[in-house]
Simulated scan of single mutants.
Amino acid sequence: MPTVAAGLVRDVLNFAVSEGADRDTLIAAVELDGAPLENQDARLPAAKFIGVLRAASKMLGKPDFSLNYGKASRFDDFSIVGLISYGANTLGEGFEQMNRYAKLVLDTGVAKGRQRFQLQEDGDCVWVIDQRPNPNMTPELTETVFARFIGDFGRYFEGERPYRAFHVTHEKPTHWQAYEDLFQVPVTFGAKWNALKAHKSWLELTTGPKNRYAFGVLSDHADALMRELEASETLRGQVEKTLLPMLHKGDVTMEKVAETMGTSRPTLYRKLKAEGINFETLLDDLRRTMAVSYLAGGKASVNEVAYLVGFSETSSFSRAFKRWTGKAPSEWRG
């Protein structure tokens, strides 16, 4: 399953405490007792980061908590990727570095060979598109990452306003006005993508003098971390990452997964068996995990969750959910 750097979890936890949340209560709510938060490069389940965002929002009574955190956080404070990105010659080059090492911060399950962020030209502007799978499951991630773009840019280039529009795929939330106040551009909810539009000149801006030696040292360390992260990924994790973007299609077969992974069905079957894994059981477990996460987030209806995890009939999903948890989906939502 997707993972996150412990430094990011520590950063959002510290921000929540600075806003008035009780640290011990938050740690208990997200089950972070004993987590290696002081080791910035340690890996934790991505659900821990989402859990802190949601628990802090509820505890503080601030539905716009994720936006506020994103704007206030400094990418170069909690991650080596931030240091490398802002150590590049231009913001365009920094963007390339961020994409190169994005999974060191938060591995969102983007398929192998696909970048987390894509740049798409639109006249004299460019769209920065977040390509993570199933974005509506975690609109908090959309809020934090794009709010951080705004916050970090404002710290380096006070007074500059290269942005033209902001689109998100989730529906209009109760705190929609916070979007307008933060981005100060037209915001479209329920859009086809999660993307920020900016003038192309944004990519040519530079953050000041660079220390190329330090940049090289940081890049070498990041490369080592990437190799370590990729080596630690089990076959199960690779299959789950491949399944996530196709889960909603329902008819997910081992043949399709094998083809996407660049292997054959017999080879994938043999390798999974060697790890003691049955494909159907893995798929069922992933559907359960995602369904529970969707419902806990409170952002999707039962019908929508059924679709997102690959069920064409809500009744079939309800029976499966009862088998998984002993409760009906409506009871789980509480």
Rank of each mutant, 00 (worst) to 15 (best):
A274E: 15
G20Y: 07
K299T: 07
A198M: 14
G151V: 00
T188I: 10
R10L: 12
L225A: 10
R270C: 06
Y213H: 13
A320K: 14
Q115V: 12
Y294K: 02
K197F: 01
D22L: 08
V145C: 10
E280T: 13
N278Q: 11
K103H: 12
S232P: 03
G334A: 15
M290G: 03
D220W: 06
H170S: 07
K241T: 15
E158M: 13
F49C: 02
T234Q: 10
R43W: 13
D77C: 03
F311W: 08
D24S: 15
K172C: 10
V4Y: 05
S330F: 08
L83C: 06
Q131Y: 09
F146Q: 01
V185G: 05
Q131W: 04
R155M: 04
P36F: 15
A231E: 10
R288L: 07
H221I: 13
Q40D: 06
T138A: 13
F215H: 14
D124H: 08
Q131A: 09
R148N: 02
G262Y: 04
V12I: 11
R333P: 07
A28T: 06
H170P: 04
R116K: 06
V52I: 12
T25R: 15
S318W: 01
L83G: 02
E313N: 14
A88D: 02
T3P: 03
R270Q: 12
G34C: 11
L283W: 10
G298T: 02
L106E: 08
D220I: 08
W202N: 00
R227L: 14
E38M: 09
K322C: 06
F146W: 03
Q184K: 15
N99M: 09
Y86F: 13
A224H: 10
G123C: 03
L60C: 04
N194L: 03
E255Q: 12
K327R: 11
D130R: 01
R323Y: 11
W332Q: 04
P36K: 13
T144M: 01
P45V: 00
R114Q: 15
G61T: 02
A191G: 12
V168Y: 00
A16Q: 07
V145N: 09
A214Q: 15
G7Y: 08
K192I: 13
K103N: 09
S318D: 04
S293M: 13
R54K: 08
V110G: 09
T108I: 05
F189Q: 00
A214V: 14
R265F: 11
D130M: 01
G326S: 07
P133R: 07
L247D: 04
D152F: 00
K58Q: 14
A102M: 06
E180W: 01
